[in-house]
Simulated scan of single mutants.
Amino acid sequence: MRLSVVLFLIATSIVLAGGVTVKSLVFSSESNTNYVEMIPQAPLTLGAFTLCMRVATELSSEREIILFAYRTQYYDELNLWRELDGRLSFYLSGEGVFFRVPELGPMQTHLCVTWDSSSGAAAIFIDGKKSLTKVYKKGHTIRSGGKVILGQDPDNYLGDFDANQSFVGEISDVNMWDFVLPDRVIREIYNREGTSRGNIFDWESTELRVRGRVDIIQCDV
């Protein structure tokens, strides 16, 4: 019996020692002032991308929510939304593409979006599971030179925010690559396996500039 207890304590210590501490952004209230700017580690001239994040929110499913916004001076280059009807969507300089997937809620969801200009293939992954593929904006290129923010939808260059579209909840583990990750790698990221980190945004090292009341907390996972 005593040996079993010792082995349990040793195993527990190993798990705790191998734990990982990650930062999360907590947006506690609706506003038209609270947001976080992410500074890219490479230009956002993109013909393909994978964007992943972990997100949780208690906002009603009948309220639209901006999840990620990249805008240049005149265009919304890449915006990721939860729509009024609960669908997830993203927009590349114009009309968007929509996916009916399990709705976001207060329990943390791992969300990834992929798109490839050469084929137009677009898909969404929820907790490692892939949606159907849709063809969207074939031949399009995302332009560099803009600002990336979390928490608000800029209707002009980093301004004109609407509190009714702001994000309220928790966002973490935001990574972005300038290519489409294999499905297997996305599943590994969801399960916190492997070491793949974004080359456009790497959550562990990307500079974050907080504006307004957004809390950065550290969590053990």
Rank of each mutant, 00 (worst) to 15 (best):
P43R: 01
S28G: 03
V221L: 14
V55E: 07
E30H: 10
V55N: 01
S131Y: 03
P40N: 09
V113T: 13
D116F: 05
I124F: 12
L9G: 06
S205P: 14
R192C: 03
Q108G: 10
Y91I: 04
C52P: 14
N32D: 15
G169M: 15
E170G: 10
V168H: 13
V210Y: 07
G151A: 09
D153H: 11
I149M: 08
V174G: 01
E103R: 13
N79W: 08
D127H: 11
V97Y: 06
T45A: 07
F99D: 03
F90D: 04
T21F: 09
P43T: 02
I142P: 00
P43N: 01
S119G: 15
Y157L: 09
R213H: 11
G194C: 02
S118E: 15
I14W: 10
G169D: 13
N32Q: 13
V210T: 11
G128R: 01
I39Y: 07
A17R: 04
F201A: 00
R192I: 09
V26N: 10
V55H: 02
G212D: 08
E77Y: 05
A17Q: 14
N175V: 00
K134N: 06
M176W: 05
S28T: 06
M1L: 09
G18K: 03
E62I: 04
Q73E: 15
V20H: 12
I186S: 00
M53Q: 14
F125H: 10
G194T: 04
S60W: 09
I189Q: 05
L7E: 13
Y35V: 09
A121T: 11
L16Q: 02
A42M: 14
I142V: 14
G128K: 00
L9V: 11
R100F: 02
T57A: 10
V20A: 05
W115Y: 04
Q73V: 07
G94F: 09
I171T: 00
V180G: 00
P102Q: 07
T114Y: 04
